[in-house]
Design a protein around this nucleic acid. Structure first.
Length: 599
RNA sequence: GCCCACGUAGCUCAGUCGGUAGAGCACACCCUUGGUAAGGGUGUGGCCAUGGGUUCAAAUCCCAUCGUGGGCUCCA
């Protein structure tokens, strides 16, 4: 996970951090008995956590924001001062959270956000006007440098002290600050655009996917239109996997407890699994992962090195318990289908397989119009090698193969020290959408744990048994989440090849219906997804409806078109291409599909 | 799970101090037969999330549950 804390050298950082201090001052004036916790600058703003006698209301925020503008106008300088422990304890005697931070800084050399500090522990404060905060800075020189027209408080949320659910729940005020009012305006516009593209809104408006209170939280229902899209995505996925040297497998949704005992899931992942069901006196669990099943297939016969590599893929539907507060539309659900695969290979094949998987994944994702990626290489924490399964040599080889693949393709990546899971290093690929937001999709991870636990072997050239390498990978991640990302990326206006309805035929009057049906039939025979608007609406309303549904092509047919055997094309982007023959339209649409164009 | 907020017709929402409900869209029917983003009329539709409680009286107040949202946390 990338740090939400903004880089300290960003010029906006000190501005926002200073705004957080000003906000804290305003809050403490309103609630003199309030306790302050921490208040950093974040990616697009800042926040500060408080322990207050009562919940904050939107009106409180308005008042606090107004007071902030006054404080800014008062023009206080930010004054830095290093202090010793005794002074610190005295200054913050009635601020227990600050005292805890002071103790941590001195004891562990971590800063106020729990991150290790460079150099010897040192305590410093920043003071502006009457407000003093334990703080390393940096800050602007004077509150006047904060533009009062470019600051806005956004929301209040609960947040545990130090992110620990056993600690007190604090109130966090989020705000944003920019250099100019124009930048603030742009940020607010951006937020509005984000809201407009919210997949939770669009899957409802476009009749794609629903959730049901009666059916249970976090469980998605795919409607026919989304079903069409999913079939296209799955067919494309299968085709590419078969071309890419994968075999497709299918495995059960439930498995006996001993399977999950062997895999270690019941030891390490039980909280994520649903309660077992009793079948003939045996406990069965619904699967949270597909791996043990693929391993069962592997173990169903003796495997020779000549058989390797094996690449087995499955659109495997899994169910995981996610805490209620974490559910979020399609992005975080309790039941989802992974485009999962496991690669079993010899140590000598690892490099090839990793490179191949990386290429395969990027190619697949590019097919959906994603061009920008954020790639993370997660490796072990070198300080705690005992926390990891698998021999050092394997970790080193695995990591080398991942690095080599990334470098072979000259891909920029971020090395995440200590972010590897205990069973192996991994590469994660996040795709960047049209609004620049990164979404986790692909994960390619080594697994040094399961081959051991299941005692997987293959017979080598030497006639002896060897342990295969196992790589677990999901490229789209979960179909549910990927679908949600697609909806947000395109704002519901999908490229033609994905659009549930590619062309809407709009008869001007009822007497044109027969021709509309004929035309639709020809188009369907050519493989296009076409609907005829048979409502009693006027043409204008029919166009509007198609437009609102983001149908790529609208084909108006009336007397003139019937006469000429044509359709009159209007595109979703408002371009009126005019009349053309049915065959010409079919060719045009087929080309857009083949090239995966937007229109 | 936790803090805060919210849940009224299929959808988006209104509903004052407690006196058992409204609009627009959608849908149905009728009129309109049209030329590139909403033609007109009539009508159907609500156990006010669910279950308790307070009250003469609850959409409205209280409690619990379910669901949703903003976050925290988690996501081997």
């Amino acid at each position: 996970m990338s740090s939400i804390h903004q880089h300290k050298d960003d010029p906006l950082h000190s501005l926002r951090h200073s705004a957080a201090h000003v906000m804290a001052q305003a809050v403490l004036e309103k609630f003199p008995e309030g306790k302050i916790a921490i208040g950093p600058a974040i990616e697009r703003g800042f926040y500060y956590d408080f322990d207050l006698p009562r919940p904050l209301t939107p009106e409180d925020l308005e008042q606090i924001e107004a007071r902030m503008r006054e404080i800014i106008a008062e023009g206080h300088g930010f004054i830095y001062q290093e202090i010793d422990e005794q002074e610190a304890r005295q200054l913050f005697a009635d601020q227990p959270y600050k005292i805890e931070l002071i103790e941590d800084i001195l004891a562990r050399g971590t800063d106020e956000y729990g991150e290790p500090m460079k150099g010897p522990p040192a305590l410093s404060i920043y003071r502006h006007g009457p407000f003093i905060d334990l703080c390393r800075g940096p800050h602007v020189d004077n509150t006047k440098e904060i533009n009062p027209d470019a600051v806005k408080l956004l929301s209040v949320a609960g947040a545990y002290w130090r992110g620990d659910e056993r600690r007190p729940m604090l109130q966090r005020i989020y705000g944003t600050a920019w250099k100019t009012a124009k930048e603030l305006e742009e940020f607010l516009d951006w937020q509005e655009e984000v809201a407009k593209r919210d997949h939770r809104r669009l899957i409802k408006d476009l009749d794609l996917i629903s959730f049901h209170e009666e059916g249970g939280a976090g469980l998605a229902y795919w409607h026919p239109r989304a079903g069409r899209m999913r079939v296209i995505i799955e067919d494309d996925w299968r085709k590419r996997h078969l071309e890419g040297g994968y075999e497709i497998v299918f495995t059960p949704h439930i498995g006996r407890a001993n399977l999950w005992e062997t895999s270690g899931h019941l030891d390490f992942y039980k909280d994520g699994m649903y309660a077992p069901m009793d079948i003939d006196g045996q406990e069965y669990y619904i699967k949270p992962m597909n791996c043990p099943f693929h391993i069962m297939i592997y173990k169903s016969r003796l495997c020779s090195y000549r058989d390797l590599p094996l690449r087995w893929a499955e659109l495997g539907t899994v169910y995981r318990y996610e805490r209620s507060g974490t559910l979020h539309g399609l992005m975080r659900v309790r039941g989802f289908t992974q485009d999962d695969a496991h690669i079993f290979c010899t140590p000598g094949q690892i490099e090839d397989e990793i490179l191949r998987t990386l290429d395969f994944s990027l190619d697949l994702l590019r097919g959906y119009g994603f061009e920008q990626f954020k790639i993370e290489l997660s490796v072990r924490d070198p300080n705690t090698p005992e926390k990891y399964a698998g021999a050092d040599a394997m970790w080193e080889q695995a990591e080398a193969s991942l690095v080599k693949a990334l470098e072979a393709r000259q891909i920029d990546y971020e090395r995440m020290e200590g972010e590897a899971v205990f069973y192996g290093p991994k590469i994660d690929i996040k795709i960047k959408d049209a609004l620049g937001r990164a979404w986790q999709c692909t994960t390619i991870q080594f697994d040094f744990n399961l081959p051991e636990r299941f005692d997987m072997t293959y017979v080598g050239e030497d006639g002896r048994e060897h342990r295969p390498y196992m790589v677990h990978r999901a490229l789209l991640g979960s179909l549910e989440r990927f679908f949600g990302v697609l909806v947000e990326h395109y704002g519901g206006a999908f490229p033609v090849w994905l659009s549930p309805v590619q062309a809407q035929i709009i008869p001007i009057a009822d007497r044109h219906l027969e021709y509309a049906d004929q035309v639709a039939q020809r188009m369907r025979a050519a493989g296009l997804r076409v609907e005829v608007d048979r409502s009693g609406d006027r043409m204008q309303a029919k166009i509007r409806n198609a437009q609102v549904n983001k149908v790529p092509y609208m084909l108006v047919v009336g007397d003139r078109e019937i006469e000429a055997g044509q359709v009159n094309l209007r595109r979703r982007d408002g371009e009126k291409a005019g009349a053309l023959s049915v065959d010409d339209f079919i060719a045009l649409a087929q080309e857009a599909v083949a090239e995966r164009r937007l229109l």
